[in-house]
Design a protein around this nucleic acid. Structure first.
Lengths: 370, 370
DNA sequence: TTCATTTACTCGGATCAAGAGCATATTGTC
DNA sequence: GACAATATGCTCTTGATCCGAGTAAATGAA
C-alpha cells in the first residue's frame, strides 16, 4: 500500500477542496494521524488548508484541503494536427498559466523546440515548482521518447528536447491520454473498464482498467483502428488489409463519395459529417454503422462498461446516432443487450489529451512526493 | 507499497527455494531487516529455511526460503468439459494432494457438490491450513459466483456451494486463469503484455498487463471469439454476426467440411486438425489462417509482446504453422513486422486453468498474510 | 445558557524499517 | 594449518509512521 501521505495527496488531487474530515475518512485514518499528516504535508509545502462553506450541520467546522500556494506544479503539453499548447497545472488539476500557438506547417523538431522554449519561460516564472512535464502527441511514442506522427509527416522527433533531463517526463498518444483524463475527470469516472475511441486522422483509443490506462508493450496499445473489422479488400497505409480505421475515418468518407483523399482529413471529414446534403449524410451513416459494429466487438472482447467517443466520433454520434447505436447493439453478445454499455461523447472534448498528459505526469509525481 | 513481509512472501511464492540473501536483494532490504523479517515469518509459520546446494563461491553460505511445513495452503479447482479436479497447493505452487473424477454427464450443481465434498475431505486432512479456494470453469462467472457454461448446458450454477463462506474464494474463466498462470509460471513470464488465446468449444482468452489479468467490468473480458473478425454472413450463437469464434472452432471445421455440427466439438475438432487426410487438413489450414489474422488484429490493438495458445490453438499451430503465421504477419501493422511478437504454445497446457486458479487464490491470500 | 455533535489536538505506545558495527561461516592462498 | 578475502547473519540504535485514548474547540439546537 502507498503511504498515508501519498494516499492523502491522491485524494486531494482527485477531489481538490475536499474537507479534511472527509479526506481522513476516505483514507481511513483517525483524527490524530490526520493532524500529523496534514501538518507534515503543510510543512513540506504540498498542502494548505482553506475555509469551507458553512455546512449548516452541527459540530466543529473542518477545513478544505487545497494545493499549497508554493506547491509543486506540472507542465502539461499537447501537440495536435494544427497547434501546440503548454499548461501549468497544480495539484487538483487547475491550470495556472498557458501558452501555445499554431503549428503553421513547421516540422516536428521545430515545434518541439518552440514548445521547449515555452516550458523554459514558464520554469523561469514558476521556478523549481514545475517538477516535470507530460506531453500528448498525435502519434506513437517509443520508450526513448521518439515520436512518430505519420499524419503530420513527422518521424523520429525527439520529444525529450522539450525538457532534457526532466525529473518527470511522460509522453503518450493523444487518444491514450484523453482516455486517462476521461476516466479521472470526465465521463468515465467510476467506470470499471472504460473504452475511449478517438477518430481524427485514423482511429485510436485506449482502455482504462480500474483507473489505469493500458499502455501496451511498446506504448502503442489502443491502435484499434488496425483491427480487421473493416472491408478485407481495402488496404490500409499500415500494410494490412481490412483495418477498421479505413472504414471510419475521412478516407472512408472520401472513398464512399468518390472524392480524392484530401490533405486535411480531419477538417474534410467534419465538413462531410455535418453536411445537410443527402449524399454526405448517407456516407456518414455508413461510416457510423462501421463504427458501431466495431465498438460492439471491442466491448465484447474487453468487457467495457462505458465507451466514450472523441474527435470525429462525437460528430458521427451526433449525425447518425440511430445507425451507430443499432449496429452497436446488433454486434453485442446477447447477454449484454439487456443493458448495453453506454456510448457517449467524451466530456473533456479537445482538452482531453492535454488533461490526460497532466494527469499522467501528476500521477508519476505523486508517487515521488513523500 | 505492500509491506516488506508481503513482498518477501511474494518473492518466495514466485521463486520457491530462493536463497535468503537473493530474496533480500530482490526486495531491497539490508541483512538486519532480513533477519527480523525471516524470523517473524518463521514464527508465524509462513516461511521455513532449508539447506542450499553449495554454490562454490566464497562467503558465508545462505539458506533457502521454502514454505513452512505447517504453513497455509490453497485449494485450486478446475472444471473442464469432461472432468473436475482439486489440488492442494502450498506457497510456491507445489501440489501436495489432488482429487478428481470424470463429469460423467452430471449437472453443474451435482458436480459442484462433488467438488465441495472433495474440498471438505481435504480440509479434514489438512485442517485450517487450507485458507481458501480458486476455481477455474469453462464459462463465465458473475460477481456473485454464479456460473454459466453454455457448452455444458449449465446455467446459474452456484459455485459458492463448493465452500460456502470461504475466507478466500476466487473463481474465473478457464482461459482467463490459464493466462494468469502462463504469465507467472509459463511462457509469458516477463512479458509486458501477454495475450493468451484458448480454443475449446469457442474461443476465449485473456490479456495480462504487467502481471495483472484484465478481468473486465463484469468478469467477462477475453471473449475475443465475439469480435467481428469472421465472415459477416455467419451467425454466432451469441446473436451477433461475423464472430471470430465461428471461424476458428470446431463448428467452423464442420461447416467447411459439410459435416453436421457434432455434440462434442472439442474432440471432433482435434480429430479433424490432426487428420492426415487432405480435406481435413485444408479445413484446418483455413481455420489457422483465420486464427492468425485475428491474432494480428489483437496484437495491433492491444500491443502485446507475446501470444500464447492453449487448447486447440496448439493443435492448429502444429498442424498449419505456415498458414497461421503468414496470416498473422500479414495482418500486423508494418512497424511490427520487423519483430513480430512470438506466437507460441502455452507451456502449462491443460494444467493452465487450475494453475491459474491456484495463482489467483494465492495472490489474494498473500495480501492477507501480514 | 447548556448540551449534543463533530472535528481537531496532544501524548504515549506499538510497529516497522534502515543502518552501523560486529560476529560467523565458507573458499582460496600461502 | 594459518590467514586473507568474501559473503552473510545478528544485535542494537535511531527514526518515521501510525494508532488510540483522552482532551479541547467550535458550531447548532433546545
Amino acid at each position: 500500500m502507498p503511504t498515508r501521505a501519498t494516499e492523502l495527496l491522491r485524494v486531494v488531487h482527485a477531489r481538490p477542496g475536499v474537507t479534511r474530515a472527509d479526506a481522513a475518512r476516505l483514507i481511513g485514518v483517525g483524527t490524530g494521524a490526520t493532524t500529523e499528516l496534514v501538518g507534515r504535508l503543510g510543512q513540506a509545502e504540498l498542502l494548505a488548508e482553506g475555509p469551507t462553506a458553512p455546512s449548516g450541520a452541527r459540530g466543529r467546522p473542518t477545513t478544505a484541503l487545497i494545493p499549497h500556494p508554493r506547491g509543486p506544479l506540472i507542465a502539461a503539453a499537447s501537440i495536435t494536427h494544427e497547434s501546440w499548447r503548454v499548461d501549468v497545472v497544480e495539484l487538483g488539476g487547475s491550470i495556472l498559466a498557458t501558452a501555445g500557438e499554431e503549428l503553421a506547417g513547421r516540422g516536428g523538431d521545430e515545434v518541439v523546440a518552440a514548445l521547449g522554449a515555452a516550458v523554459r519561460r514558464l520554469r523561469h516564472e514558476y521556478g523549481d515548482r514545475i517538477r516535470g512535464i507530460g506531453i500528448a502527441v498525435p502519434g506513437t511514442v517509443s520508450r526513448d521518447l521518439m515520436l512518430d506522427a505519420s499524419n503530420l509527416g513527422w518521424h523520429d522527433v525527439d520529444l525529450a528536447a522539450a525538457w532534457p533531463r526532466a525529473e518527470i517526463f511522460v509522453a503518450g498518444n493523444d487518444a491514450t491520454l484523453a482516455a486517462s483524463a476521461e476516466s479521472r475527470r470526465g465521463m468515465a469516472v467510476g467506470a470499471a473498464v472504460a473504452l475511449h475511441l478517438r477518430i481524427e486522422a485514423g482511429l485510436g483509443g485506449a482502455v482504462v482498467d480500474g483507473g489505469k490506462v493500458l499502455i501496451g508493450a511498446l506504448g502503442a496499445a489502443g491502435e484499434f483502428g488496425h483491427m480487421p473489422f473493416g472491408d478485407p479488400a481495402v488496404r490500409c497505409p499500415c500494410g494490412a488489409y481490412g483495418c477498421w480505421g479505413t472504414a471510419v475515418d475521412g478516407s472512408a468518407l472520401a472513398r464512399l463519395l468518390g472524392h480524392e483523399p484530401p490533405r486535411d482529413l480531419i477538417t474534410y471529414a467534419r465538413r462531410i459529417i455535418t453536411s445537410p446534403e443527402p449524399e454526405p449524410a448517407a456516407a456518414a451513416a455508413t461510416v457510423a454503422t462501421a463504427l458501431g459494429r466495431g465498438i460492439a466487438g471491442l466491448v465484447n472482447g474487453l468487457d467495457a462498461d462505458l465507451v466514450t467517443l472523441g474527435g470525429l466520433g462525437v460528430d458521427l454520434l451526433a449525425a447518425a446516432p440511430e445507425q451507430l447505436l443499432t449496429a452497436y447493439e446488433a454486434g453485442l453478445m446477447s447477454f449484454r443487450r439487456a443493458a448495453p454499455p453506454p456510448v457517449v461523447p467524451a466530456l473533456l472534448g479537445d482538452d482531453g489529451p492535454i488533461a490526460g498528459a497532466a494527469e499522467e505526469a501528476w500521477t508519476a509525481l505523486l508517487t515521488r512526493l513523500v
